[in-house]
Amino acid sequence: DWMGFIFYPKSPRFVSEIPAYLPQKAKRVGIFVNEPKEIIIETASLFGLDFVQLHGNESPGFCNEMDRSRLKIIKSFRVGDKFPNEEVEPYHGKCDYFLFDAKTSLYGGSGKKFNWNVLSDYRGETPFLLSGGIAPGDAEALKYFSHPKCIGIDINSRFEIAPAQKDVQKVEQFISMLKS
Rank of each mutant, 00 (worst) to 15 (best):
F7G: 15
F7H: 15
P9C: 03
P9Q: 09
K10F: 00
P12F: 02
F14G: 11
V15R: 01
I18W: 00
P19N: 03
P19W: 01
A20G: 07
Y21L: 12
L22P: 05
L22Q: 01
A26P: 00
K27Q: 14
I31K: 09
I31T: 12
V33S: 03
N34Q: 12
E35T: 09
P36G: 04
K37D: 11
I40P: 10
E42P: 00
T43V: 08
S45T: 13
F47G: 05
F47L: 06
F47D: 01
L49P: 10
D50C: 03
Q53D: 05
H55D: 11
N57P: 08
N57Q: 14
E58F: 10
S59A: 03
S59C: 05
C63F: 13
C63S: 09
E65H: 05
M66P: 10
R68K: 08
I73M: 03
S76C: 15
S76Y: 13
S76Q: 12
F77E: 15
F77M: 12
G80N: 04
D81E: 08
F83T: 07
F83Y: 05
F83E: 07
E86C: 02
E86N: 10
E87W: 00
E89W: 06
P90L: 05
Y91R: 12
G93A: 06
K94N: 06
C95W: 06
C95P: 04
C95Q: 04
F98T: 12
A102G: 01
K103M: 10
T104K: 08
S105A: 10
L106C: 05
Y107T: 02
Y107H: 07
G108H: 03
G109E: 00
S110T: 02
G111M: 06
K112H: 13
N115D: 11
N115S: 10
N115H: 04
W116L: 08
W116N: 02
W116V: 00
W116K: 03
V118G: 02
L119W: 03
S120D: 10
R123K: 15
R123T: 13
R123G: 12
G124I: 13
P127W: 13
P127C: 13
S131G: 02
G137N: 11
A141C: 07
L142N: 02
F145I: 06
F145A: 09
F145D: 02
H147S: 06
H147I: 08
C150W: 06
I151V: 13
D154V: 00
D154E: 01
F159N: 02
F159T: 08
E160M: 12
I161E: 12
A162S: 15
A162R: 14
A162I: 10
A164N: 10
A164S: 14
A164W: 01
Q165P: 00
K166Q: 07
K166Y: 07
K166H: 06
Q169N: 11
Q173H: 13
F174V: 08
I175W: 10
S176Y: 13
M177E: 08
K179H: 04
